[in-house]
């Protein structure tokens, strides 16, 4: 397997008024394609910032980020948008579904942006909703779904366009442990069946137990990088 994510000397800081708060310092990280990796660490350690930078949602102050062979610094905003659209899937802590669209339409929307034909779009959206166990709820809007169901729709949305990589920011943080575990099973199945690379941020021990690799982030630096020998369960 080749490298899908490559970060070299990545730093990022934020301004809070006149104060400059460092978030990441000199991060070097390589992620193999097909990996199932957790970015672990306490709140404020910089794991979400790193995830955002890998996803091209924010600009690094220094260093280079290369995803799927493309260096972000050399991409225009439109090219970055296209990269996210075709190669990267996102799952957010707060689900972030579009409230005026049904579950099916939320999943379809990414394919609409990709220019997939309507019939194909609908077929694939139904198929992936069935995979996440929501075939009976396709026409419900987010407000009519539980947190776990919404997060499943978010996962379906993230994987429907067959991305190379899915970035999940604390995907189970708003879910009860049973629902969270179900979601992790789902993500693990996507990883093994479809070969999708998963990188998720978490500070939950249970979530970390599922990861094959755990990168510990502390104070904006990589504190530990643990490769497990065998897969969980």
């Amino acid at each position: 397997m080749g490298t899908i994510v490559e970060c070299n000397g990545v730093s990022k800081s934020y301004r809070q008024g006149k104060l400059v708060v460092p978030a990441l310092a000199e991060i070097d990280l390589c992620v193999e394609a097909g990996g199932f990796m957790a970015l672990a660490g306490p709140s404020g350690s910089g794991k979400t910032t790193l995830l955002n930078l890998i996803g091209g949602l924010d600009d690094a102050d220094s260093g280079t980020i290369r995803v799927d062979g493309r260096e972000y610094a050399r991409q225009s905003k439109a090219q970055l948008a296209d990269l996210r659209l075709h190669r990267i899937g996102f799952v957010f802590q707060a689900y972030n579904l579009i409230p005026v669209l049904s579950a099916l339409e939320n999943v379809e929307y990414v394919m609409l942006l990709q220019g997939v034909a309507a019939r194909e779009r609908r077929r694939r959206a139904r198929e992936v909703l069935a995979v996440v166990g929501l075939e009976g709820m396709a026409h419900r809007r987010p407000a009519e779904l539980s947190g776990g169901q919404q997060q499943r729709v978010a996962v379906a949305r993230a994987i429907v366009s067959n991305p190379s990589i899915v970035l999940a920011d604390e995907p189970t943080a708003n879910l009860d442990s049973k629902t969270g575990e179900g979601l992790l099973h789902l993500m693990q199945r996507m990883n093994s069946d479809r070969g999708v690379t998963f990188i998720f941020s978490t500070h939950d021990e249970m979530v970390m137990a599922y990861a094959r690799r755990i990168v510990q982030i502390r104070d904006g630096r990589i504190a530990d990088d643990l490769h497990k020998a065998s897969e969980h369960r």
Binding site: G55, L57, F90, F92, N96, I98, Q114
Partner: peptide
């Protein structure tokens, strides 16, 4: 605005 951020994260171009 948050929703626009999500749409951009999903790959929506600024012009759209």
């Amino acid at each position: 605005m948050r929703e626009f951020g999500v749409l951009k994260a999903l790959g929506m171009r600024p012009g759209r």
